[in-house]
Amino acid sequence: MTSLREMLENVLRDLKSAGDIEASAIVSRDGLLIAADISQNVNAEAFAAMTATMLGAAETATSELGKGIPDRVIVEGKSGKIIATGAGSKALLVVMTNPKANLGLVLLELGKASEKVKELLGG
């Protein structure tokens, strides 16, 4: 029997095997780390808290403008991108890509993965 944690970790592993994605995490909407595939020397808990605040702030900002909820937040930098997207009402999914990543492809994979996470966590 596989535990929920293992199933979530499998989703992250599949994401990485699709290429271009260097690290990923599933984070509760309120900033707690649920599962991660991140190298040991990153402070994963702080990263999780920041990501949740980032997406939460973006959602508040756009809904203040009457534009509804954004699909995702993309942070672009020279050494790669960070993309955070909702995964149901309880969690969000965040990935870090390498600088040459094919954004279209990554977003496609991310969309599929976020659906799986949403299902696993019950909506």
Partner: peptide, 10 residues
Amino acid sequence: DPLLKVLGKE
């Protein structure tokens, strides 16, 4: 304050 709601849960 809107962020308080996000941060305060759990």
